[in-house]
Amino acid sequence: MAAATGTYEIKNEHGEVINTSTGLSNKKLLMWSFLGSDVMFFGSFIATYLVYRNRSLVGPYPADILDIPITSVSTFVLLMSSLAMVLALSYIQQGRQKMGTFWIFSVVVLGAIFLLFQVYEFNHFGQVGLTPRTNLFGTTFFILTGLHGAHVTLGVLWLIFLGFGSIKGSLRADNAIDLEIAGLYWHFVDIVWIVIFTVIYLISARDVGPPG
């Protein structure tokens, strides 16, 4: 605060002058603010799920239908995609283009596998008799996980776009920030799943309908 004019020119970790008052990248600040906004979005849905927990009037209830082992595998896949994402960013930042491209497409593949798990799960639930129209559990479950899946799909498309950019050479160390904000988005989707996995699967997998 003391050196009033000194606030404008701040160098980032690579010694480049960042032309903003805070020294933060515009894009990264935008992404973090957007993630703050998304916290409220998923927070509202998770709160709705918790409000309606154990209040379905008819079955199937979570205990009849949720399959913890399978979802654990898909959770693991999504966690590993997060790891791949951070490695991709690390290599792109170092200018190691081939490794970076490899890891970006690893994220795409892992994300796609996660989505396939979700498609399988939705299909399976539909066959067993749980649809969004069945009961409150179905409604809250499908809309929450479905919107999470939509976020994952968007992330996969974004990363495919960036992956081709990396192949063509338009995504390089000097604009790695584009990959970094995509990575922030991806990790955020991952932590949302961490919460969903805990709240919907682990905590309420033994719920057998309303008490009494």
């Binding site: 805070t22 933060l24 916290v39 409220m40 951070v86 990790h187 932590i191 961490i194 919460v195």
Partner: peptide, 28 residues
């Protein structure tokens, strides 16, 4: 714990400028 590990290390909040951490924490 998982949440903090991902946010802190994968999203670089631990290494990055504190501004971002404040924004995210305030929203949380």
């Amino acid at each position: 714990a998982k949440f903090i590990l991902v946010v802190g290390f994968f999203m670089h909040l631990k290494f990055d400028r504190k501004y971002y951490a404040w924004i995210f924490t305030a929203c949380m």
